Simulated assay, not measured.
Amino acid sequence: MAAVNVPEVSAEDIEIMAASQPDAGFQSILVGLLFGTVVALLVVVTGGVAYINIKQWLDARQETEDRDKEKAAPAAASSAKSGGKGGAEEVDPNAVVPLKRANRIKKEKGKGFAAADQFTSRR
């Protein structure tokens, strides 16, 4: 194999080449600031999405617990009232129900205009 001759670079040539290059100091600072901003925004957005998901999971868990308590409470109350004979359930008009259930009740009643008392979550 033939040896490759690499030309020698003198100190003067290095100074000339360095002087002919544009100033990279400002560009590197700008790129660094933009990169830092992008990373910070990604962290904020990721944290926001995580917060929303955790909040939604906690709300669903709370609603499930409330639904289970609601199912257990009328059964215990009706058996206590009727002496354990399983009588008819009385509906309390002032009972607070979850908003999803209130919307489902409205949909079951039919479509169209409704009275003002049907717009509340109390049934």
Rank of each mutant, 00 (worst) to 15 (best):
L30V: 12
V91L: 09
G87A: 13
G83W: 02
M1V: 13
A75L: 12
F35M: 11
V9K: 03
A73C: 01
V91K: 06
P22V: 00
A114D: 11
F119Y: 06
D23K: 00
N94R: 00
R101H: 05
L41P: 03
T64L: 09
R61K: 14
T37Y: 13
A3M: 15
V44L: 15
A88C: 03
F119K: 08
D23A: 01
K81I: 12
V43D: 10
G36V: 10
V31C: 05
G84E: 01
V44C: 13
V97C: 02
G25E: 15
A116E: 12
P93R: 03
A116P: 07
E8F: 15
S82Y: 03
A75T: 05
G112V: 01
P98R: 09
T46W: 14
I105A: 04
A75C: 01
G86R: 10
I14Q: 04
F35P: 03
S20N: 12
S82I: 04
V96E: 05
P22K: 01
D117F: 05
P22Q: 00
G48M: 02
G84L: 02
A76M: 04
G36T: 13
L34N: 14
K100H: 02
K71I: 14
A95M: 00
L58G: 08
L58C: 10
K81G: 06
A3F: 15
G86T: 07
V31E: 12
L42R: 14
D23M: 00
I52D: 12
A76E: 09
I105T: 08
V49S: 06
A80I: 05
